[in-house]
C-alpha cells in the first residue's frame, strides 16, 4: 500500500554559502512539512521567505544543509522520483530556440516515452493550453503568458502524480488565471497532489486545501485554509428578502435571542488580511508563531 504522505520534509535547513564557504543567507530554518496525497498544498510568504528554496530542495535542485526532504518516501536527490513529478518553475525556463511542439517532444523523450504515445500526448497538451495556433513558432516569439502555458504543458507531459508549481499564475491574464485555477482543481479531482507557492493570496485562497506560511525561512503557520480563516467571535447573518423594517425587527429579535435566521455561521476575512497580520506580528516578535491564529487551527 502506498503511503499517504507524498512530500515530507524533516527539519529541512538551507544555508547559502559563497564561493569561500562563508555563510551568506540562512534561507530555510528547520522546516517540517507534510503534503498528503490528493490535496492542494500552498506555500505562502513574502518575497525572499524561502518558498522557492523549499521547492528546489524538494526537487533535488539544491542539497539541504541539514535535515531531509523526502518525495514518495525517497530522497529528493533520487532521479527516479522525477518520473512521477511535474514541475513548473518560477519563470518558464525553456529553450527559446525550440518551438512548442519540439519543446514538448523533447521533454517527452526525457521521460523515455515511445514516439506514438508522445505524439498523442503533445497534441493533447497543446490543445489543452490553447496554443494550437502557435505551435510551430519558436518560443522566443512567444508572449510571457504563452510561454507560461507551454511551461505548464511541459509539467504535465508525463501525467504526474505530484505537480509542483512555483507561482503558477504570474504572467497570466485573468482568463488564463481562471483557467489555471480550474486546471489545478481538475488535477486534484483526478487524484493528483499539488504543491504550489504563490504570493497572490486570492489565488491561494481559491484553490488551496492547506497552506503553510513562511517568513524569513521559518514556518509561521500551517493548516487548513477554511480553519485558518474563520473568525470565531463574530457571528455572520445572511438573510434575503427582508425589508428595512424586518431588518430592524431582526435586530431586535436577535437581541432577544429568538429570531429566525436564514444563515448563521462564521464569516471569513480575506486571506490578505490574515497574511498581513502574520507578517506584522512576526516583525514585532521574531522567532515565534503567531498566537491567535494558532488557537484557531486547533479545532
Amino acid at each position: 500500500m502506498q503511503s499517504d504522505v507524498v512530500v515530507e520534509t524533516q527539519s529541512l535547513s538551507k544555508v547559502y554559502r559563497d564561493f569561500w564557504g562563508r555563510q551568506k543567507v540562512r534561507a530555510l530554518k528547520a522546516l517540517d512539512l507534510e503534503v498528503r496525497r490528493g490535496e492542494i498544498f500552498g506555500l505562502l510568504g513574502p518575497n525572499g521567505s524561502g518558498k522557492t528554496t523549499t521547492i528546489k530542495l524538494i526537487l533535488g535542485l539544491l542539497f539541504p544543509t541539514s535535515g531531509k526532504a523526502l518525495v514518495f518516501g525517497k530522497d529528493a536527490t533520487e532521479v527516479t522520483k522525477n518520473e512521477r513529478i511535474g514541475y513548473l518553475p518560477e519563470e518558464s525556463y525553456l529553450y527559446r530556440f525550440l518551438n512548442a511542439e519540439e519543446t514538448l517532444n523533447f521533454y517527452g523523450r526525457l521521460f523515455n516515452m515511445p514516439r506514438a504515445v508522445r505524439r498523442q500526448r503533445v497534441a493533447d497538451l497543446i490543445e489543452m493550453v490553447g496554443l494550437d495556433w502557435a505551435k510551430r513558432r519558436q518560443l522566443k516569439e512567444y508572449s510571457k503568458g504563452m510561454v507560461r502555458r507551454i511551461g505548464l504543458a511541459q509539467a504535465l507531459i508525463n501525467d504526474p502524480e505530484l505537480v509542483v508549481l512555483d507561482e503558477p499564475t504570474t504572467g497570466l491574464d485573468p482568463i488564463g488565471t481562471r483557467d489555471m485555477k480550474d486546471l489545478i482543481l481538475k488535477l486534484r479531482d483526478e487524484g493528483k497532489t499539488i504543491l504550489m507557492c504563490s504570493h497572490l493570496l486570492a489565488d491561494v485562497q481559491d484553490v488551496c486545501d492547506r497552506i503553510a506560511i513562511l517568513y524569513q525561512g521559518e514556518l509561521k503557520e500551517m493548516g487548513r485554509v477554511d480553519a485558518l480563516l474563520s473568525v470565531r467571535d463574530v457571528t455572520e447573518v445572511r438573510a434575503a428578502g427582508l425589508s428595512a423594517l424586518a431588518q430592524e425587527e431582526l435586530k431586535q429579535v436577535i437581541e432577544r435571542n429568538n429570531g429566525h435566521l436564514l444563515n448563521m455561521g462564521n464569516p471569513t476575512t480575506t486571506l490578505e488580511e490574515l497574511f498581513l497580520k502574520i507578517i506584522h506580528e512576526s516583525e514585532e516578535h521574531p522567532g515565534r508563531r503567531v498566537r491567535g491564529v494558532q488557537e484557531a487551527q486547533k479545532d
Binding site: 526537487l59 533535488g60 535542485l61 532521479v79 525556463y93 526525457l110
Partner: peptide, 14 residues
C-alpha cells in the same frame, strides 16, 4: 545560468 537546466534535471534525466 538561464536555469533552463532546472527544467531538464527535474525530469528523470541522469
Amino acid at each position: 545560468k538561464n536555469r533552463t537546466l532546472h527544467t531538464v534535471v527535474t525530469k528523470p534525466v541522469r
